[in-house]
Design a protein around this nucleic acid. Structure first.
Lengths: 98, 98
DNA sequence: GACATATTTGCGCAAATATGCAAATATAGT
DNA sequence: ACTATATTTGCATATTTGCGCAAATATGTC
C-alpha cells in the first residue's frame, strides 16, 4: 500500500471523524432530498460559517455533492462511493493477513 | 442516532484517520503474528514514544489488542470488530434514506 | 546488583483545527 | 435600487494534536 493511498484513506476518515461533520453526514443520511446549509445548521452546534466550512471539507473528500439552486446550495451524500470505500477498508482489515 | 453513538463512531474514525496511526494499522493488517512497538516503529516515521502514544489511542478505541510478553508488548488488530463497525457505517450511509 | 531492552510519561513546542463574529458576496423578490 | 436570505471568507482566539527528547518505569539477562 503506497503512502499516497494511505494518506487518501486517512483524509477520508479524518473528514468523517469529527463530531459535527459526522452529525452532518448522519443528518444527510436520513433524508432523501438534498438539504441546504441553513437547514443542516440546525442539527449541528455550530453557526452557519462553521457548517459552511465543514461542508467544504466533506465536499473536498467527495463525501457530499453540492448543487447550486438559486441563492442556496443543496447537499447530498455520495452514498455508494463512501460505502464502497469503507467496505474496502473493512475487507482489507479483515482479510489481509496472509 | 444519539449524540453518544455519533461521538463513539467519530472517535473510531478519528483514531483511524491519522496518517501514522493508519500506517500502523495497515502494517498490523498484513502480518499474522502480533508485533511489538519497536518493530512497528520501523514502518512509521515517528520515534518509540510516538508509536507508544499512537498505539494507546488505537487500543482505547478497541482497534488493536495488546498482550504483555515479558518486557515487550505485542499488538494485533481486532479485525472483525473494526470491519463490522466500518460495514455498519457503510450500510447506514448507503441505506438510511427512507 | 548492574546492565540492556522495551515501553511509558512529562514537558515544551509548533502546527493544525474548530469556532464565532463581522464583513463580503451572491442571488431572489419586491 | 432596496431588502432579505444564503453562503463564504478574513480575522482572532482557544483548543487539540503530533512530535522529539529526556527521564522514568518495567522486565529480562548476566
Amino acid at each position: 500500500m503506497s503512502v499516497e493511498e494511505i494518506q487518501k484513506v486517512a483524509r477520508l476518515l479524518k473528514a468523517l471523524g469529527e463530531f459535527n461533520r459526522l452529525s452532518l453526514v448522519y443528518e444527510l443520511c436520513g433524508c432523501k432530498a438534498p438539504k441546504n446549509a441553513m437547514c443542516l445548521c440546525e442539527c449541528c452546534s455550530v453557526d452557519a460559517s462553521g457548517v459552511s466550512r465543514h461542508l467544504k471539507v466533506l465536499a473536498q473528500e467527495g463525501i457530499v455533492a453540492s448543487e447550486k439552486k438559486g441563492r442556496e446550495i443543496t447537499y447530498s451524500l455520495n452514498r455508494e462511493e463512501i460505502a464502497e470505500k469503507l467496505r474496502a477498508l473493512a475487507d482489507k482489515i479483515e482479510n489481509s493477513h496472509e
